[in-house]
């Protein structure tokens, strides 16, 4: 991952402080992967655009609350994308059901694809396997727990014994690495 514009943790801090330029960096860095994942789970291309855009809108609005498991924001983005995608699938299913039976507006529930089917969930990740493979070990575990086993992000973080304090320490370490890199460049 190109960290010349800062680590994901640093970008999150900039987002939380209202730095809009960081939003463009986050988008450029992660939107291709999020878009490919959205492509796999969305009912239509129009849904892909809405899902991806809503995912990045959410990262802006919740930047102060987001907990990065290891180093990358990508797991959180993919989980959020998955949640929006499931909503889109449900809406599409309801719409199809209503077309068949106006008297049964809830009739779409049984045709909604349930994404906690592990095999199907793994198939949904087919376009982002390379990105996940490049993640740090804990970030990869978050992807496994959330995107394959279907755990909520917070529960996955709890299972991995992550805490806000631990994340802040990681942010500090990231900054130290960045400072060291800058020093070496100057030499």
């Amino acid at each position: 991952m190109d960290e010349s514009d800062g680590t994901d943790a640093e970008l999150l801090e900039r987002l939380a402080s209202g730095d809009q330029r960081a939003m463009a960096v986050v988008f450029d860095r992660h939107a291709p992967a999020v878009t490919r994942y959205a492509w796999a789970i969305a009912p239509s291309r129009m849904d892909v655009e809405e899902i991806v855009q809503d995912t990045f809108l959410t990262v802006w609005r919740k930047a102060a609350e987001i907990m990065i498991a290891e180093a990358s924001l990508l797991p959180w983005l993919l989980v959020t994308c998955r949640n929006f995608g499931m909503n889109a699938v449900r809406k599409a299913a309801r719409s199809r059901a209503e077309q068949f039976d106006d008297e049964a507006p809830q009739g779409g529930a049984d045709v909604v694809r349930e994404h906690h089917d592990a095999e199907a969930a793994r198939d949904d990740l087919r376009w982002v396997l390379d990105e996940i493979e490049r993640l740090e070990p804990i970030d990869r575990q978050v992807c496994e727990l959330c995107l394959v086993e279907g755990l909520p992000y917070a529960e996955a973080a709890e299972r991995l014994d992550l805490s806000v304090g631990a994340v802040k320490q990681r942010v500090s370490r990231s900054r130290a690495r960045l400072k060291k890199a800058v020093t070496l460049d100057e030499i």
Partner: peptide, 9 residues
């Protein structure tokens, strides 16, 4: 999408 996101946020 990027333009939309940067405006819509």
């Amino acid at each position: 999408m990027k333009r939309n996101v940067l405006e819509r946020v």
